[in-house]
Computed example of a mutant assay.
Amino acid sequence: MTDMPPRAPVPPFSFEDPVPKVRMAENAWNGRDPAKVAMASTPDTRWRNRSEFLLGRAEVEAFLTRKWATENGYRLIKEIWAHSDAKIAVRFCYEYHDADGQRFRAHGNENWAFDTLGYMAQRHASINDVPIADSERLFHWDAPGPRPDDHPGPTELGL
Rank of each mutant, 00 (worst) to 15 (best):
E136W: 11
E61F: 01
P154G: 14
L138E: 09
R23M: 02
R66D: 15
Y94C: 13
S126W: 12
P18Q: 11
C93G: 03
V90H: 00
D100I: 05
P144M: 13
N111Y: 12
D149A: 14
E16V: 10
A113M: 12
V37D: 08
A125C: 08
L159H: 00
R105A: 09
A62T: 06
F13P: 07
E16N: 08
R147L: 11
L54W: 02
R66G: 15
L157G: 00
T116Q: 14
R147H: 01
S14P: 10
V10I: 05
L76N: 00
R66V: 08
M120N: 10
I127S: 11
T65M: 10
G108Y: 02
R32A: 12
R7V: 04
T45I: 10
E71G: 02
T42W: 03
P5D: 08
P12R: 01
T65W: 11
A143T: 14
A121I: 00
K87C: 15
A35G: 09
V10P: 00
N30S: 02
G73I: 04
P34K: 05
P152L: 12
N111D: 13
H107A: 15
P18M: 09
H140K: 11
G101T: 06
S14V: 07
Y96D: 07
G56C: 03
G108S: 09
P12D: 00
E110T: 02
